[in-house]
Amino acid sequence: MFFKRLDNGKYRYYEKFYDESEGKWKQASVTLTSKTRQAQGEARRRLGVKIDKKILEHDERYKQKQKFQKMTVREVYNEYKIFRKQELKDSTYAVQSVMLNSVLKNILDDLINNVSASYFQRYFMSSLNSLRYKKSQKSLINLFFKYVLKLGYIEYNPLERVELPKQRKTIEDIQKKREKFLSIDEMKKFKQSFEVTPREVRMNCLIEFMYLTGLRIGEALALMWENINLIDRKLYIKYTLDKNSTSIMEFKLNSPKTIDSYRVVSINDRCVEILNTMKQLNTEVKRKNELFVFLSLTGTLINPDTLNIYLKKIAKKANIKNKKPEMFSSHMLRHSHVSLLTELGVPIKTIMERVGHKDEKTTLQIYTHVTKKMKEDVDEKLNNLEL
């Protein structure tokens, strides 16, 4: 042991010790007010306690590190899933689990410390999924490894070294974006191809209602009569249907997608007609979910997958120019509502509030394209003007 006098008049005592867990010499220190024999004895006692504590801490850390090195991806992933299930909605958890499982399934029995960045780089480079989907997968895997790193299971996050190639936009990509919504005239043509069997009439009502309100499919199917004020012509969007973690027959209701999705949506005369039609139609079937608006012939909620199949069928029949039938889905109706409001001259901020968009990117893409088309139409009309 040795000591040094400090500028403030106190004395700092030092003792060296060898840390076997790290294989190197270290130093402990304590500060006392004097250098008397009694003070030196006290310093020796305190240093002994401090060194014993440090050795014990390092020993425990070493044992823990050894234990972590024997853990498999499966063990850590199962622990992570318990954590994530507590903070996510069931529907979100189900979707994210599918995305994570597809990436991790081939390395579940590998040691977590042996997982390399090259595995993920090869996975994403060989994947046939869209760049957007791969970005989502990478983001979720990155969250997993951040959790693992924070708990000390690994020493670095392999996802930090993984790169996704930038997407080259083709004319076909640009055309696809234009196909994702219908103009007013296109929607009129689409409606003319509706089929009229009792089963299809119910889906026709849902399709037109979503087009006129901009509701997500989950929000429309979760709509209950108690959430509708026909006098004031308002819809109170409070729930969305969980169609991912369970079946349509055993559905669950969740809170809406984001805080902006809690909203009040005004409805027009045609929406009121549709709601009255559904109320009448629902009296004609054995209602298993009588609180809800959009029921099928069997009295259960209309199946979103069945609706999407029907939309593609009608799209093929309608044969709308530059609109491929395979592009049609329930979400296209939501985009079409944004297009509708844009054509009607509604400000973008008001559109975002009505449809519950938190991120203006999607709204802005449709808004920009439709306003550009409107300007082109004006130019054409002016060119053809004869006085």
Rank of each mutant, 00 (worst) to 15 (best):
I314E: 10
M99A: 14
K257E: 10
L104A: 08
D110V: 00
S329Y: 05
K373F: 12
T277M: 15
L241F: 05
V293P: 03
R287G: 12
E250P: 00
R12T: 14
I314N: 14
Y153T: 04
F68Y: 15
F294H: 07
G356F: 01
R354V: 13
L364F: 12
S130W: 00
I259T: 13
N229C: 03
T246E: 09
L295G: 13
I174S: 01
Y153A: 06
L212F: 06
L311K: 05
K146Y: 02
G356A: 11
N204T: 03
R12I: 15
Q66Y: 00
K4V: 14
I107E: 09
F328W: 10
Q365P: 01
E208F: 02
A28E: 07
V76H: 06
G9C: 07
S102V: 14
K243N: 13
M203G: 02
C205I: 03
R61Y: 09
P304H: 09
F328Y: 14
S127Y: 01
M210T: 03
L32R: 10
K50Q: 10
K313T: 13
R202H: 04
K316I: 03
I217Y: 04
L230G: 06
L235I: 12
N78L: 11
R354L: 05
R178Y: 03
L223M: 13
A94V: 08
V148Y: 00
S116D: 13
L385K: 04
L291G: 09
S139G: 02
T368C: 12
T36A: 05
G299P: 11
I267M: 13
M224C: 15
L128M: 13
N276Y: 12
W25H: 10
T362P: 05
Y147M: 02
E79Y: 09
R46H: 04
E200P: 00
W225K: 10
F124M: 02
F328N: 08
V196M: 09
I248P: 01
N142S: 15
N229K: 09
S126E: 11
I314P: 12
Q192E: 14
Y18I: 05
I82H: 04
T197A: 04
R5M: 11
V73D: 04
Y62I: 09
K180G: 13
D19I: 07
L111N: 11
Y236L: 12
R233Q: 14
Y153H: 04
I107M: 02
F68I: 08
I302L: 12
K189H: 10
D269C: 00
T298L: 13
R45Y: 03
K349L: 14
E22T: 15
M327S: 15
Q175D: 01
